[in-house]
Amino acid sequence: MNLTAIFAIYRMEMLRFARTILQSFIAPVLSTSLYFVVFGTAIGSRIDQVEGVSYGAFIVPGLIMLSIMTQGISNASFAIYFPKFIGTVYEILSAPVSFLEITIGYVGAAATKSLFIGAVILATAHLFVDIQITHPLAMVAFMGLTCLSFALFGFIIGIWARNFEQLQLIPLLVVTPLVFLGGAFYSVSMLPPAWQTVTLFNPVVYLISGFRWSFFGLADVPVGLSLLAIAGFTLLCLGIIWWIFRTGYRLRD
């Protein structure tokens, strides 16, 4: 394992992150605050409680998930798309590094950034509502795995994309709707029965449910199933990346 190379990639990505740290910090603080003003105050004043949890607190896990998923994808996809776009990818491809090392470097950095943003949101939310975390270890594990798997997913998109439109397409058309419909801001049990069944085909439901369970001990689906879903998604992404580097898909002519 070429640890030096992994660290070099990771460090370079984190340096770029550090240059825009203020932006990376302010954006989630601002958006979280807005969500609390709109959802927490306006809607929360009517909903009051969801399964014994105040609505303001109830949406926190969903808010964090929404951000780390979209951020994970956009950070990782950009991280590999940009070198392709400006041509610097030649150096990565000519280096004595394996696909796994390249992936760990880029995806590790993207996941770290998402984790940071997730933590900022959690801290910001804490200023608005009381949050209890029933299973802190599980919370960290769910958050970490989600950051990782969505960064992997973003990495694939970044390799696949041939232009900026394609880079934005999947996050916009697929991920955002899935997250909004995935129970980020409501409990699946609040839906009519027919919609509950439809919802169970949305993979994001499992992630948000598991994450919320780690906070409040409440889940829409069994926790084991949530873990299985996220582990499966991670493995699927790893498999696709392995195939990409083996075949040189969109990287090597």
Binding site: A5, M12, T88, A95
Partner: peptide, 21 residues
């Protein structure tokens, strides 16, 4: 093909690390 917003020093340091040195 070079990253426009990096410093020269960071780039050469990166290259060395990338090759495992």
């Amino acid at each position: 093909a070079l990253e426009p917003f990096e410093t020269v020093w960071n780039l050469v340091r990166f290259s060395r690390g990338l090759f495992g040195k």
